[in-house]
Design a binder for these strands. Structure first.
Lengths: 250, 250
DNA sequence: GTCACGCATTGATTTGCATCAATTTGCGAT
DNA sequence: ATCGCAAATTGATGCAAATCAATGCGTGAC
């Protein structure tokens, strides 16, 4: 019961679009070509708008937990979300960080396969899953776009397996910074310096490292002249070409 | 030019279905509910049959390499295939092992995102990508099924990230054996003992370990009474419940 | 302004896995 | 059966990253 859990924390705002269809269901939907609602026909947009609502989370608020019934799909409007899986003893693996334009909650099974939590203050669009599925049946083009998005996510996941299984700490951190930068540019923001909104611990759980190793590796890259650490969680990539070489193991 | 490379090695047989539509494009297509061609209408099957051909590979033969133009999709009919990504210095990460019923070659970009190679003697169905895409446009139900398959693969990939980033060597091997067993059962085969057709080195590259650690961990599990190693690359899971506990980190 | 808490950083030590180097086993070819 | 090669196993050693242990710093609460 993801939605009720969230409501308990007082973070869910009531639907913004109830009865009054918006031009677009949310501000993010036209940001990236991969986004589900981009380039829809007016009547399709209207139908989407009729089922969408808005969710707002504070830093650290849970969105849903692994194993909960998967009742909604979400689209990040602003902020950042982390998704992760846990082992019984608490070991955690981040499977992704999501930014404006990204989707989450797509589940093949009836339950979510991972947990999701806000990294910063975050706003999301929320689509009831059943209703969205009925919509997708009638608009194959939307499903086609969804297939493209999931295929892309799969390719990203495979790249991440290469990182987790075979890259060194140094290579992992370099890859991570470049990834953040690229995605930042995709959203039309500045790619350098890049904002790193998540904690060292979160980064460690994403890259399969400990907090300490993450911290030390940042320091090491700084001392090597590849990056500099700016206040406000920003990282300046002083030598991007070098970072790219490091990331590829050269 | 995947197909011509393969042809050079003399492994590609000419299309089996040219001009003479089959009942089903390949023996595997009805094996699993996730498979693309399962439960198709007769006229859909006929159209699929018209574009499919067959490929046969010997152990170790490449199917395609990362970066090649993605001209075909493949469906494993018999045997086993490994897919992997490489770093510049040769470090390798297996991203999956594929068995009868599994798909590979789905590419969002114009090129393959990974390389594929036969683990054992293998037969595959081959679908020209462009033609299949045109077919999918006309049959949204097939695309819907494809979406389900890719979503499932994504969930598997995320599970693998948890394994790579946070599990110990022992937990990785236990998880791996259980996964092989489950998939073996899905294909209607015996799940215990389970056939392990790939080398220790391949397993290491799948789990982010070295050959030696894989070997030692097998020995350790054997001595602990969880498994026994049988001739012919078979592994008997003597204490499956224990293996499951180990896999979950209990 | 200062207090306190969470987070980042740094240092010392341990450990698990990789690496390197033999040696053995398994298996197909003859 | 025996040869010959590839794969698996085993042992010795080294190193990268984890773990353990303080200490420093910045931000928000009051």
């Amino acid at each position: 019961m993801a939605i009720f859990d969230v409501k308990t924390t007082g973070q869910v705002r009531e639907p913004i679009a109830r009865g009054a269809p918006l031009r677009a269901p949310c501000g993010a939907c036209t940001v990236r070509h991969l986004t589900l609602c981009a380039a829809l026909e007016p009547h399709e947009l209207a139908e989407i708008s009729a089922i969408v609502s808005s969710v707002e989370l504070a830093r650290g608020d849970p969105l849903f937990d692994e194993g909960e019934p998967a009742q909604h799909l979400f689209n990040v409007t602003s902020g950042a979300v982390k998704v992760y899986k846990l082992l019984a003893d608490g070991r955690r693996q981040m499977t992704g960080f999501l930014f404006p334009g990204d989707f989450l909650g797509l589940a093949n099974e009836e339950t979510y396969a991972y947990s999701a939590e806000a990294v910063t203050h975050t706003v999301l669009c929320r689509f009831p899953r059943r209703k969205l599925e009925r919509l997708l049946e009638r608009y194959p083009k939307m499903e086609h776009r969804l297939l493209g998005m999931v295929s892309h996510e799969l390719a990203v996941a495979q790249e991440q397996m290469l990182l987790l299984g075979r890259k060194t700490a140094r290579e992992k951190i370099a890859s991570f910074l470049l990834m953040l930068s690229r995605r930042s540019v995709q959203r039309g923001q500045n790619g350098n310096p890049v904002v790193v909104p998540m904690s060292r611990n979160d980064i460690g759980d994403y890259l399969g490292l400990t907090t300490e190793t993450v911290s030390r590796t940042f320091t090491q890259l700084k001392q090597g002249g590849s990056i500099s650490l700016l206040p406000g969680g920003k990282v300046e990539m002083a030598d991007r070409a070098r970072l790219e070489d490091i990331a590829e193991g050269l």
